[in-house]
Design a protein around this nucleic acid. Structure first.
Lengths: 164, 164
DNA sequence: CCCGAATACGAAGCATGCTTCGTATTTTGA
DNA sequence: TCAAAATACGAAGCATGCTTCGTATTCGGG
């Protein structure tokens, strides 16, 4: 624990080291996780985001794009783009909803469901490895703290409608 | 250690909830931080990444793009794009190095240095607010754990030692 | 000194992520 | 009932982020 003192009076701007800034560290963590995930799941050509989408679809069975976007806390248009790519690969089906022609009903194809089963192991391992430098006890604590932060910062999408 | 929870006979694949996956939580944290930063620094039209770059430049005085990319642990070509945008706004100067015409010597302009001074307060507040749902003690622990994870996963290009 | 290795970039391409604006469709309320 | 509000999308634009490939320049060893 170094406590840099020094602060010369006429000195320039004293930089706050990047390695101590929460935002920088979070960006690095994200970078690390994506790299670990890509490595672990390279055989499936699936990104973490696509895995999240497939997981959400497995739960929903059928859902429109806006619902899925809310499920994974992602912007609606970004979600659409990802779903299009998954559909182009035959992993997801996007059909206009017959009861509401505004909506696109999305669902896993058999190929998508099969891929999800096969990727689960490596994907979990990648998630686990991301916190692999912490003790098991710390990992639990770390996840709990992240959940608390997320709970305290609702995503724009779904929360605004509740309170005007 | 793996206590295989029995899967119900008719049951489909049982998903690991997104809200418990480290990778998902990290993505949400990043999303939250960027939003808080943008809100706090909206008057300056600067993104977290650009702030990191300006900070790195303030320390380096002068540096080529590859060095800056390593400083902030970002891909070289992405760094170039960000520097171009900063240069277009007159915050950064990008000149071909006279001693090595392969390299681009980058440095803060007076406007860039001035902006960095003004943005520091709001930027720090945004970083602090990102962990605002944790107690002060927890914030310290959280940052320490993130640093440990980052230290255990070196970026492809090293030499981030400048920032300690 | 000179040729190959190393270095610093740039361009192109794909995939997130976000905002704003416009359109089609459904719902709703006076 | 019928026009306004709400909803679900799509397109376009900007900003990250990454990889791969190609080019210019410098450096290093024979």
């Amino acid at each position: 624990m170094r406590q840099a003192k020094k602060r010369r009076s006429g000195g320039k701007h004293r930089p706050w080291p990047l390695s101590q800034r929460p935002g920088y560290l979070i960006r690095r963590l994200h970078q690390i996780h994506v790299a670990l995930f890509q490595e672990a799941c390279s055989a499936f050509e699936v990104t973490p985001l696509q895995y999240s989408l497939l997981s959400a679809l497995a739960v929903r069975e059928t859902a429109d794009q806006t619902t899925l976007a809310a499920d994974i806390a992602l912007d609606r248009t970004t979600t659409t783009g990802a779903l299009k790519r998954l559909a182009a690969r035959g992993l997801v089906e996007r059909a206009v909803n017959k009861d509401d022609r505004r909506a696109r009903s999305c669902r896993l194809t058999p190929a998508g469901a099969a891929l999800l089963v096969k990727i689960e192991g490596p994907a979990r391992e990648a998630h686990r490895a991301t916190l692999g430098d912490l003790s098991v006890r710390e990992q639990t604590l770390f996840v709990e703290m992240m959940q608390r932060i997320v709970a305290g910062n609702p995503s724009r999408d779904n929360a605004t409608a509740l309170f005007d």
